[in-house]
Simulated scan of single mutants.
Amino acid sequence: MADELLHETRSDVLWLTLNRPEVHNALNAAMTDALTHAIRAASGDRGLRAIVITAAGDRSFCSGADLKESAGGMFLSRDGTNPIADVMRAIESCDKPVIARINGRVLAGGLGLVAACDLAYAADHAEFGLPEVRVGLFPAMVAAKLLAKIPLAALQEMAYLGQPVSAAEAKRLGLVNRTASPAELDGLIEDVLTKLRQNAPGAIATGKAALLAMRDMSSHQRLIFAESTIATISGSDEAREGRQAFAEKRPPRWANGS
Rank of each mutant, 00 (worst) to 15 (best):
A239D: 06
A231N: 11
R222P: 01
D237F: 06
S228Y: 08
D216K: 12
A247M: 01
S219W: 10
G235I: 01
I233H: 00
R240F: 09
L212W: 06
A209P: 01
G207P: 00
A245H: 06
R243Y: 02
M214R: 09
G242R: 02
M214C: 12
R243D: 00
R215V: 10
D237Q: 09
R240I: 09
M217Y: 11
A210C: 04
S219H: 09
S219L: 13
G235Q: 09
F225E: 08
F225G: 00
A213E: 14
I230H: 02
E241Y: 05
E241Q: 12
L211Q: 08
T232G: 10
I230C: 04
Q244S: 14
T232Y: 09
I230F: 11
M217I: 04
K208G: 04
K208Q: 09
A245I: 05
S228L: 10
Q244G: 03
A209G: 00
G235D: 10
A210Q: 10
K208M: 13
G207T: 04
M217R: 11
M214S: 12
M217N: 07
A226T: 14
F225Y: 12
G242C: 00
I233V: 14
A226H: 12
S228M: 07
R243E: 04
H220T: 09
S236W: 07
L223H: 05
D216F: 07
M217L: 13
A231C: 06
E238T: 05
A239S: 15
S228K: 15
T229E: 13
I230T: 11
L223M: 13
D216I: 05
A239G: 06
A239E: 07
K208C: 06
T232K: 14
D237S: 13
M217D: 11
E227T: 10
L212P: 02
D216G: 02
I224G: 01
M217A: 06
R215C: 08
F246E: 12
R243I: 03
R222M: 11
A226K: 07
S234I: 03
G235R: 05
G235F: 04
Q221D: 13
M217H: 13
A213I: 07
T229P: 01
M214G: 01
G207A: 03
A226F: 11
E241R: 08
E241V: 02
T229K: 06
A226S: 15
L223N: 07
E227P: 02
T206F: 05
T206S: 08
L223V: 13
A226C: 12
E238K: 03
S234N: 15
E241G: 00
S228D: 11
L211F: 11
A239L: 04
I230K: 00
H220D: 14
D216E: 12
F246R: 14
D237N: 11
G235L: 03
R240A: 15
G242N: 01
K208R: 10
S236V: 08
D216H: 12
I230A: 01
Q244N: 11
F246T: 08
M217G: 03
G242W: 00
M214W: 09
G242V: 01
I224E: 15
L211N: 07
R243T: 01
F246C: 03
A247L: 05
D216P: 03
R240W: 06
S236F: 03
D216R: 10
R215D: 14
L212R: 14
Q221N: 11
S236D: 07
M214V: 08
A239H: 00
F246W: 15
A231E: 14
D237R: 12
Q244K: 15
Q244Y: 05
G207L: 02
